[in-house]
Design a protein around this nucleic acid. Structure first.
Lengths: 253, 253
DNA sequence: TCAAAAGTGTTATCGATACACCCATGC
DNA sequence: GCATGGGTGTATCGATAACACTTTTGA
């Protein structure tokens, strides 16, 4: 991945540019064809998979850093991002350290230092996302949640924690705007909820409950062309949606 | 607070000992005489108040660091601690920086660097707590939540965020074991919930709901001596309490 | 004996769940 | 016309909220 010289150079530059000891890792959720997906990177020349991540500029807001990192990986702007946990086990950096061990002295190895990583989860529109590998990776791809391979470092734990948080927040935050296309049908939205929660919901009760939140607009004209009865098209009422994000929703699933 | 030499020395030592750029701040909640209280420190020779905090040893777990810091301030062990948010605004360190500005060069001033602080909230038993000032403070005292003075840096924001989290978690976690004495009456426990939530609850409904959680043991003998009808004494069933912490509680307040 | 604190029970209402029927469309 | 997907309505159950009565005890 790095030659000895490159590693020394990178380290020197990195120490100047980034806040030391701090990293950001992002769990990016997307939704496509009834499947919840996560964005993963594959390390160059190795069978290792990991989460999109990066570092924080010396004078950069954390949220801005997370946005910047994700923009590089997805080409998206204004991503829905939630900081959910900090992972700081001293041992968590060890495997990463091992990768470059012995090549140069530790003081010349950016990756040999301890990193506290801030976990963010993101909800993004699958169709507008352009997965883009970073300098260390040869691939950046969507992966079905059920088919996620073993991840490097503690990234498996970070992913699990993100999913847990997402499920929890489903109970008091409106979720969907960032994962659904502009217009969608009620069954499509229901599929999203079912996928996140990992369980089936009753069609009629789901509709009643979602509508009760009063965050949806129903389009006059149903979607044409498909087989069977034409479903109504909905879109999120952004004003009410934002309000619900602030105030929280009542009750849970 | 510091002389020029002391600051330079402290800085040199600190850089070796602590993880740079990372701090921990704790919002310690206690409960006494029907009042929710927060532990605050008063800066030596200044009118500034702030939250108990500290730094992380180079090879220390974050949770261990938080525990260590709080043990120094409270003399308590095994404190209930919840990491709830990371605060990393580059501007947040500025006021702290100002304090020592110009005394020495920035590179010789530990406090002139940017700090990302990890917010923890703690629930502790008021009666067993021995508030102890740290090196920079002349006082460490309990302060009624409604009477908290303006806090330095972004500590006001951290406190607010902690309270928000506590209220949120009241909905799905059993809370009380760490704030109440070993034995307590139902009205006493109710007062705690009312205080955290900032609103009155119905006596009878509260009792039913709490008992439904099935985390309490009722003592055979009521509390004697007080005026009026003797209330029953309850204690937490630790086994069931721990289980509920893992599984979460249903429904909310 | 009375006020105040505490224990216990009942009813009403709202929301969640479960379930049934009607409508539209392509084969 | 019938299978399938989708829209709407209703009954039931449980949890919450609202509310009343009784018991104990010290003054």
């Amino acid at each position: 991945m790095f030659t000895k010289q490159e590693l020394t150079d990178y380290t020197k530059e990195a120490r100047e540019k980034w806040l030391n000891h701090i990293s950001i890792d992002c769990v990016v959720f997307g939704f496509h064809e009834g499947q919840l997906k996560v964005l993963l990177l594959k390390m160059r020349n190795e069978a290792k998979w990991y989460l999109p991540g990066g570092f924080v500029l010396k004078q950069e807001q954390l949220d801005v850093a997370a946005n910047r990192i994700l923009k590089e990986r997805t080409s998206l702007d204004h991503i829905f991002l939630q900081q959910f946990h900090v992972f700081g086990d001293p041992a968590r950096s060890q495997p990463h350290t091992d990768m470059y061990n012995g090549m140069v002295e530790d003081k010349d190895n950016w990756f040999a230092t301890r990193f506290i990583t801030i976990g963010y989860y993101a909800l993004v529109d699958f169709h507008n996302t352009v997965p883009t590998p970073d300098a260390m990776s040869e691939a950046c791809v969507w992966c079905n949640l059920e088919e996620v391979p073993a991840l490097s470092l503690d990234h498996g734990q970070i992913l699990e924690n993100a999913l847990y948080t997402l499920r929890l927040q489903l109970n008091y935050l409106p979720i969907g705007y960032n994962l659904m296309p502009n217009e969608f049908t009620m069954p499509e939205l229901q599929k999203l909820y079912e996928t996140i929660l990992g369980k089936k919901l009753d069609r009629r009760n789901f509709q009643r409950k979602i509508l009760a939140f009063d965050i949806l607009n129903r389009s006059e004209h149903p979607r044409k062309g498909g087989a069977h009865k034409a479903p109504y098209l909905y879109s999120f009422n952004l004003e009410k949606y934002e309000q619900a994000l602030k105030d929280g929703l009542a009750s849970g699933w």
